[in-house]
């Protein structure tokens, strides 16, 4: 297994108490596989990626769990690695395409140089001309003109910056790329084209990917497996088809029906009433219970176990949605 996350917990310490942003997350990722993590904003999905790469602010605290990462020489637990060792795994092992690609490029350095910086950081022996050649290849791969590598970020358009950021993420041939809302700031047409290209490159290079987005349509397009996150926890994880065809968690069900589908039969659009809980003191029992139409007294008392209900289909729910069942969400 390439990446194996087990019961990962990371809280932010604030004056009011702990914000439980990542609260017992487990998943596996294999070579060439792509996992999509979907959830509302503020549910902690960005914190997962930051926790895996350990790019956390000072007030973040690990509260347990492990991130086992295997670069080919046996699994290493990234959580307990000293900082100097951890640096070797960043970008070389796991790289990232950040949420705001527009701002991920330093405005005062040439784009090419910023990529070369990453390469030379991990391969100090690579001569400059070879590094430049590598950047040129990467630019071609992502559909950028290699002559643009000596330009500054402000000379790029939004879509070009996005491509440059993807090229940068590929620079050290990482095993895994985490793409956090990789296309949110772009218009829909560019968004679609770039997603397709990422997918193509991923297949070509046989890399593993983790996509993070609030937009289930984006996730559906690029992921083999989809995890649905709610209030710091995974509520459901299965392969993409199953999640769409037969969601078992009421929250997933709600999400599926909250976006209009352009293919297949017309279904009623539903919205989930209420607000996601405050991660400072999330509700006891099931965190989705206050908004769940199927919730009963057990749900608000006992926290549901995250278990494999069917093969490779993990759900955390006391009353999973049955096939053909229709769940109705009512506004209060």
């Amino acid at each position: 297994m390439l990446l194996s996350v087990r019961d990962l917990r990371m809280y932010y310490k604030t004056k009011m108490g702990y914000v439980k942003a990542v609260d017992g997350i487990s998943f596996d990722l294999d070579q060439g596989e792509s996992l999509g993590i979907v959830g509302e904003s503020g549910c902690g999905k960005t914190s997962i990626s930051m926790t895996i790469l350990r790019l956390l602010p000072d007030n973040a605290e690990f509260k347990g769990g492990s991130v086992l990462f295997d670069m080919g020489n046996g699994p290493v637990d990234l959580v307990n690695l000293p900082e100097s060792e951890m640096r070797k795994y960043r970008w070389r092992g796991i790289s990232m395409i950040f949420q705001a690609a527009m701002n991920s490029l330093n405005p005062v350095y040439k784009v090419g140089d910023q990529i070369i910086e990453a390469i030379q950081n991990h391969f100090p022996d690579m001569p400059l001309d070879k590094a430049r050649q590598k950047v040129a290849e990467l630019f071609t791969l992502v559909g950028l003109d290699p002559s643009r590598m000596d330009q500054y970020p402000h000379q790029y358009s939004g879509g070009m910056k996005q491509r440059a950021v993807i090229a940068m993420a590929l620079a050290c041939d990482p095993k895994i790329i985490i793409a956090d809302e990789p296309t949110t700031a772009l218009d829909v047409i560019v968004q679609d084209r770039i997603l397709k290209e990422i997918r193509k490159i991923q297949r070509k290079l046989n890399m593993a990917m983790i996509y993070i987005s609030h937009d289930i349509a984006v996730i559906a397009e690029v992921s083999d497996k989809i995890a649905v996150m709610y209030a710091g926890k995974f509520v459901e994880l299965a392969d993409a088809v199953t999640i769409f065809k037969q969601p078992m968690h009421p929250y997933t069900y709600g999400l599926m029906h909250a976006f209009p589908s352009t293919v297949g039969e017309k279904t009623e659009l539903v919205t989930i009433p209420g607000e996601p809980p405050n991660l400072l003191n999330p509700p006891k029992g099931c965190r989705f219970a206050p908004r769940c139409p199927k919730a009963d007294s057990v749900c608000s008392e006992v926290e549901p176990e995250y278990r494999e209900l069917e093969k490779n289909h993990f759900v955390a729910c006391h009353h999973p949605v049955q096939p053909k069942e229709v769940v109705r969400f009512y506004a209060e």
């Binding site: 795994y89 960043r90 070389r92 950040f98 701002n103 990453a118």
Partner: peptide, 22 residues
């Protein structure tokens, strides 16, 4: 707070390089 600082850290650059260069 800028994103390119997080990017620089994610690239695995040493702390003082991120601080000084970026």
């Amino acid at each position: 707070r800028e994103d390119y600082i997080t990017t620089a850290k994610a690239k695995g650059l040493p702390d003082n390089v991120v601080r000084d260069k970026h």
